[in-house]
């Protein structure tokens, strides 16, 4: 009965079919079979964290000797800016209080209000050259779930693609598989920002489905629209670098320069929903 299992070609065919089935099942989101990946990534993540930590420490150590003089100059200029910023900050705080009061009177729902920022380190990057996926050191044990947005202080980075026990896979907005509903700050037109394989290496992405009557020019700010439910409204994505035309005037696309520098990304923040009950209901709705 077991004779066919001794034939190499039969085993190969068998494994191939099993893998194809597994691929099919795992492409469905939130599936149980993704725990297979969970096992390996849980084993790997402490080691990745360690290597990443030592790598950073070694770099810091050498950088220490290089820029003592640079630091001294920088320190002086920074002190000046601190004084200026403290003054500015006081002014802005006043404005913030006023703004809050006005918002309360107008009853505008703030999408950030029920969000909490969780810091995370990038511990590993994609192994091949084709995708822009990276691993952060927070997982389901920190309450991270799929589709949580990832940001830095400068703007949008991407979203959680797959959260494992101790780490999560994050897909960057410059990856080909990512597409975000965005909004031009100037005219409030809704557009789509997508990753592109050719532009990815330069850290750029593409903006398409630009309405025909929209007034787009280089330097315009692009932010998330809040449509689609993953990203809250108003996170900065980047600026328009160049507007191009495909075949006629109506068919346009623009190249976006994200405000986040994807080549030098080390620490990110996860926007986590505060209310646990709220979270569960949103998952049920899927």
């Amino acid at each position: 009965m077991l004779r066919p299992f001794k034939n190499k070609k039969f085993i190969l065919l068998f494994v191939t079919i099993v893998l194809l089935v597994v691929m099919g099942i795992s492409s469905i989101q939130n599936n149980k079979i993704n725990y297979v990946g969970d096992i390996f990534s849980t084993i790997l993540s402490p080691f990745q964290r360690f290597i990443n930590f030592t790598d950073k420490k070694i770099n810091d150590f050498f950088a220490h000797f290089e820029d003592i003089n640079k630091l001294r100059e920088e320190n002086e200029s920074l002190k000046k800016t601190v004084v200026e910023l403290v003054y500015e900050n006081e002014k802005l705080l006043e404005l913030k209080i006023k703004n809050d009061e006005l918002r309360r009177t107008l009853d505008i729902k703030d999408q950030y209000n029920n969000m909490e920022m969780v810091g995370a380190n990038i511990i590993a990057k994609d192994m091949g050259n084709w995708f822009d996926i990276f691993i952060i050191d927070r997982g389901t044990k920190d309450g991270i779930a799929n589709d949580y947005p990832i940001v830095t202080s400068r703007g949008l980075v991407g979203r959680v693609m797959q959260s494992d026990l101790m780490s999560s896979k994050v897909i960057a907005i410059i990856d080909e598989e990512s597409s975000i509903s965005a909004r031009l700050s100037k005219t409030s037109d809704i557009v789509v920002v997508k990753g592109d394989r050719k532009l990815k290496d330069q850290g750029l992405c593409i903006m398409s489905y630009i309405p025909a009557d929209a007034d787009v020019s280089a330097g315009d700010k692009v932010e998330t629209s809040g449509v689609g439910g993953i990203y809250p409204k108003g996170i900065v994505i980047g600026r328009v670098k160049e507007v191009r035309q495909r075949t006629n005037e109506l068919d346009r696309y623009a190249i976006i320069e994200p405000s986040v520098d994807f080549k030098r990304l080390e620490e990110v923040f996860i926007l986590k929903e505060k209310d646990i009950n709220n979270n569960e209901t949103s998952e049920e709705n899927k």
Partner: peptide, 30 residues
Amino acid sequence: TEGAIVGFFCGLMQDAVSGTVIGFYALMGL
């Protein structure tokens, strides 16, 4: 045989670390 086994496990690890679906790199490595 050894090539296929090493390829399979290398691919599976790669799927776990960076991959959109489980099994793609495992199949390629195999």
